[in-house]
Amino acid sequence: MKSYRFILALVILLAPPARAQDAQQRTPATSAPTTVVPQTPATVAPGDLGAAAGEEVLPKAEEQAALLNHQGVLVETLDGKIVREQAADRAFNPASAVKLATALAALRTFGAKHRFATTFWITGAFDKATGTVGGNLIVSGRDPSFHDEHAVSVARELNQLGIKTVTGDLVVAPRFTMDFSPSSQRSGERLYDTLDATRRPAAATRAWYESRMALHDADALRTTPSVVVMGAVYVDAVPKEARAISTYYSPVLADVLKALLCYSNNFMAERLGDMVGGAPGVSRFLTEQLGFRPEEFRLSTTNGLGVNRLTPRHMMKIYRALLDVLHDENLKAADILPVAGVDPG
């Protein structure tokens, strides 16, 4: 019986030559319909791919050489034997493959089961008889995956605590974000609207409904969660006198990474990268933990945008280290990486 060995392969491609892109983008203007007369193919002798068949189809030698300058390949067996390599030590722009380094640093820092906390606080007195908070509602947290449905869930929990109205303001702590918005102010305004059923966007209502149905939690849909904040929305630190009343916890980090990598979400990668020190922090991690030489690579972002440089050999080390940390957490690559034909994205 034949035995088969699994093979790891990494290919880093830069942009193809501009001439190929231009050829795809240039579309001749059409002034009037034209008639195309089919040409009779030239007779080609068996085994002869000359001008009639090959010159316009197969790239010329110089074009092939130019293409090879824009790509690096490294193929290894699982036990580390090199099957094929090409420019494996040349630095290329890895684009979104940088997200693998960010994911690795996050898993090593927090662990696959880590959950990000979003905490809600109040100031002033709480009148349980009327469900009124006579002060401010404050929110803090750095969850990169906090969305509309989670805000409605918070409104439901606050209702269960007896809170229906806040006479003061909604105060948003710096770095709180919602629905992929990089602005804490805009995130706070979205939260303000989503908490209040009379102001809630249709998209938020739909997200709440779909999330409950996915969890088979029809009971949550029997009531309409709502918390009305009477004041303004602004960004400020959590005051010392504030009292924590509720904390929302995100899905585990492995699930957050699955969504991030399936959709190659730049915002989530940047937010997660910020929590491990940004591009300098991930660079330091690669240097200290994987032995990368600082002069041989460059990271300017943690999501792949901008100018970054890694070699195929670097990327193979990152991927193998990722497999190792997943194995330590009893997880597989498919638990955080997209599977073609199976996962959305």
Results as ranks from 00 to 15, higher is better:
residue 1 M to C: 09
residue 6 F to S: 14
residue 6 F to P: 03
residue 8 L to E: 15
residue 10 L to V: 14
residue 11 V to D: 01
residue 13 L to Y: 02
residue 14 L to P: 04
residue 14 L to W: 09
residue 19 R to F: 14
residue 21 Q to C: 05
residue 21 Q to I: 15
residue 22 D to L: 12
residue 39 Q to K: 13
residue 43 T to R: 10
residue 48 D to R: 11
residue 49 L to W: 12
residue 55 E to R: 11
residue 56 E to Y: 11
residue 59 P to C: 01
residue 61 A to N: 10
residue 69 N to F: 01
residue 77 T to F: 09
residue 79 D to C: 01
residue 85 E to G: 06
residue 88 A to R: 09
residue 89 D to G: 09
residue 90 R to P: 01
residue 93 N to S: 14
residue 94 P to K: 08
residue 97 A to D: 10
residue 97 A to M: 15
residue 98 V to E: 04
residue 98 V to G: 04
residue 100 L to Q: 12
residue 105 A to Y: 05
residue 113 K to T: 15
residue 117 A to M: 03
residue 122 I to C: 04
residue 128 K to C: 06
residue 132 T to W: 03
residue 133 V to T: 08
residue 135 G to M: 05
residue 136 N to Y: 05
residue 147 H to Q: 13
residue 148 D to V: 00
residue 149 E to H: 12
residue 150 H to N: 15
residue 151 A to D: 12
residue 156 R to D: 06
residue 157 E to P: 00
residue 165 T to A: 06
residue 169 D to T: 11
residue 170 L to F: 03
residue 173 A to G: 04
residue 175 R to C: 05
residue 180 F to R: 08
residue 181 S to C: 04
residue 182 P to E: 09
residue 188 G to Y: 04
residue 192 Y to P: 00
residue 192 Y to K: 06
residue 195 L to Q: 06
residue 198 T to Q: 09
residue 200 R to D: 00
residue 201 P to L: 14
residue 203 A to N: 11
residue 204 A to D: 00
residue 222 R to F: 09
residue 224 T to R: 13
residue 227 V to P: 00
residue 230 M to H: 15
residue 233 V to P: 09
residue 239 P to H: 06
residue 242 A to C: 08
residue 252 V to A: 13
residue 255 D to Y: 01
residue 265 N to S: 10
residue 265 N to T: 08
residue 271 R to L: 00
residue 276 V to D: 03
residue 277 G to L: 09
residue 279 A to Q: 05
residue 284 R to S: 10
residue 290 L to P: 03
residue 292 F to L: 02
residue 294 P to H: 08
residue 294 P to N: 11
residue 300 S to T: 15
residue 301 T to M: 02
residue 305 L to V: 06
residue 306 G to V: 11
residue 307 V to P: 09
residue 308 N to M: 10
residue 312 P to V: 08
residue 312 P to W: 07
residue 313 R to E: 13
residue 314 H to K: 04
residue 315 M to C: 07
residue 320 R to G: 00
residue 323 L to R: 07
residue 325 V to T: 14
residue 330 N to T: 10
residue 330 N to C: 03
residue 332 K to C: 05
residue 332 K to E: 15
residue 333 A to D: 05
residue 336 I to Q: 08
residue 337 L to A: 13
residue 337 L to I: 10
residue 338 P to N: 01
residue 341 G to S: 03
residue 342 V to L: 13
residue 342 V to C: 04
